[in-house]
Simulated scan of single mutants.
Amino acid sequence: MKKKRILLKPTSGLGNRMRAISSFIYFKSLIDAELNVIWVPDAGLNIHYLEIFKPSPYFNLLRPNFTYQLITKSKTLLNNKFGLVRWLSRLYNTIVSRLIGVDCVLLDEDVKKGAEHLQKVCEGKFNILVITGNQCIDYPEGFQAFVPSSDVAAKIEAARKQFKENTIGIHIRRSDHDIAIANSPLHLFEDKIEEYLKVEGDDFAVFLATDDPEVSDYFKGKYPNAVITYPKTFGRNTKEGMMDAVLELYLLAGTKKIYGSYWSSFSGVAKRIYGTDLEILHV
């Protein structure tokens, strides 16, 4: 019997890609399909998969293929207020999908409807192309697929030597993330550190993960004996910056408890790596 085949092109940043892959590890079992991942370095995540992770037994890693880039996932076109534009955009995707040999194309809006919906859509389909930065189901077990590369693992182990036995993690999302800035102000994280200092004194440490160098400098200056950071390259557009983001993610995941920012996937992904307790600090 012909085997179903999922071609998954995860998009957006590191956390979004890991969650998407994890969810389709579940979905491939649901429809008895093989899972193939097309990992494309771009402005959102400028690094190849094998530079940060080892090959996974949970899916096949394929070389990036230009033909899959021809599918449009533009919400401006696919959700346009003019019906003719929506119809033409979907017709274009249908024609392209047939030319590149796939039976159906699933984009963000399809994936957001969940695994059961996708199961119905994929009935009778054998070559399924998925382009998404979303998950079709929350499947923490799927994160077992991600094992840091030898180089990354060695750096993680070296950095963890700074940790104390009681080390909590704090993730402060800033940069262009207006929702996190508005809902998770800095004083909430300062209050949490003060709470621990009153109870634990010098017997605890804070590992701080942030995308803002000013925030990093501020907390290290205010709590020099408690706050630990990884001396990383900030930014997503360099290989060094993205490798450091992976290091920071796994260091955050290895703390006793994570205090995260509102509406940020990074905190949620860190929780799922080792099952670490997560509390989102928000107003």
Rank of each mutant, 00 (worst) to 15 (best):
P224T: 06
V147W: 00
K155T: 10
E194F: 06
T210P: 03
K198L: 13
Q162V: 00
G142I: 03
F163N: 01
Y196Q: 08
N127W: 03
E195K: 10
L186R: 06
N134A: 13
D203G: 12
F189V: 07
A153R: 11
D138W: 01
E157F: 03
S184E: 06
H171T: 02
S150C: 01
P213C: 05
L188G: 07
R174S: 09
D212L: 04
F204L: 13
A182Y: 03
R174G: 01
E157D: 15
G201Q: 10
N166P: 00
E214T: 11
G124L: 09
S216A: 15
I137E: 13
L186K: 11
L129A: 01
D176S: 12
D202R: 11
E214G: 04
N127G: 02
N166S: 06
P185A: 11
F126Y: 15
E195W: 00
E200R: 14
L129F: 14
A153G: 01
K125S: 05
R160Q: 15
I156E: 06
A153L: 11
P213Q: 04
F146K: 12
L129P: 02
I137D: 01
S150H: 11
K198V: 13
V215E: 06
G169C: 08
I168K: 02
G221W: 11
A153Y: 03
D138M: 04
I193T: 05
I128A: 08
G124Y: 09
G133A: 09
I156Q: 05
D211C: 07
F163I: 01
A209H: 03
E123W: 09
P140V: 06
K220R: 15
C122P: 07
Q162R: 14
D202K: 14
Q135F: 11
H171I: 00
F207P: 04
F146V: 10
I128C: 07
D191C: 05
E123L: 13
E165F: 08
F189G: 08
H187F: 14
Y139W: 13
A154S: 12
E141R: 08
A158N: 12
I193W: 04
S149T: 04
D191Q: 15
D178W: 13
D211V: 04
F163E: 00
D203T: 14
G133M: 02
F143P: 09
